[in-house]
Simulated assay, not measured.
Amino acid sequence: MTKTYEVRARHWAGGWELHIDQVGVTQVRTLDKAERQVRDYLETLLGLDVSDTVVNINPDLGGLEENVREAKERSRAAEAAQRAAAQQARLVAVDLRKRGLSVSDTATVMGVSRGRVSQLVKTRTAQPPKVASRAAPR
């Protein structure tokens, strides 16, 4: 069964104190090394096998945690919107070209360069590369 350890990380002048719920406290210089430090602590000091362990590092940011969460969520939403917009642009470029618009006219309608139209159409209509067949040796 997977064991989960919740760790509250508190910043101080020398790095981070890592408060492992119901276990103890250790320290690390930078937060990116916190999970490894907690695992080492559990293995070394308590003799625990941590191969099937989840370690959740929760930085105490003095109230900025919600701001960080919101910024991450907005970034994820923006990335999803960008992917959707790119897909829509590919579909529109293909549709405009199928209706007989030139690359130049498609570019003007879409507000992009002619090169971008070519990229959009090529990306949308690209087929998997064909594998060259080899004749059997005689």
Rank of each mutant, 00 (worst) to 15 (best):
V94M: 05
D95P: 01
L96N: 02
L96M: 13
L96Y: 14
L96Q: 06
R97H: 14
K98S: 02
R99L: 08
R99M: 12
R99H: 13
R99D: 11
G100M: 13
G100D: 00
G100C: 05
L101Q: 12
L101N: 06
L101W: 15
S102H: 06
S102I: 03
S102T: 14
V103H: 06
S104Q: 15
S104G: 09
S104L: 09
T106A: 06
T106W: 00
T106P: 02
A107H: 02
A107D: 00
A107E: 08
A107F: 00
T108D: 11
T108E: 11
V109F: 08
V109M: 10
V109Q: 14
V109C: 04
M110V: 04
M110F: 01
M110Q: 01
M110N: 09
G111I: 09
G111E: 12
G111V: 11
V112N: 08
R114E: 00
R114F: 01
R116E: 06
V117A: 06
V117N: 04
S118G: 15
Q119D: 06
L120F: 04
L120I: 04
V121I: 12
K122R: 15
K122C: 02
T123C: 01
T123N: 13
T123V: 08
R124Q: 14
R124W: 11
R124H: 10
T125D: 02
T125R: 12
T125C: 09
T125S: 10
T125K: 15
A126G: 01
A126M: 13
A126P: 01
A126N: 05
A126V: 01
Q127R: 13
Q127V: 06
Q127T: 08
Q127K: 12
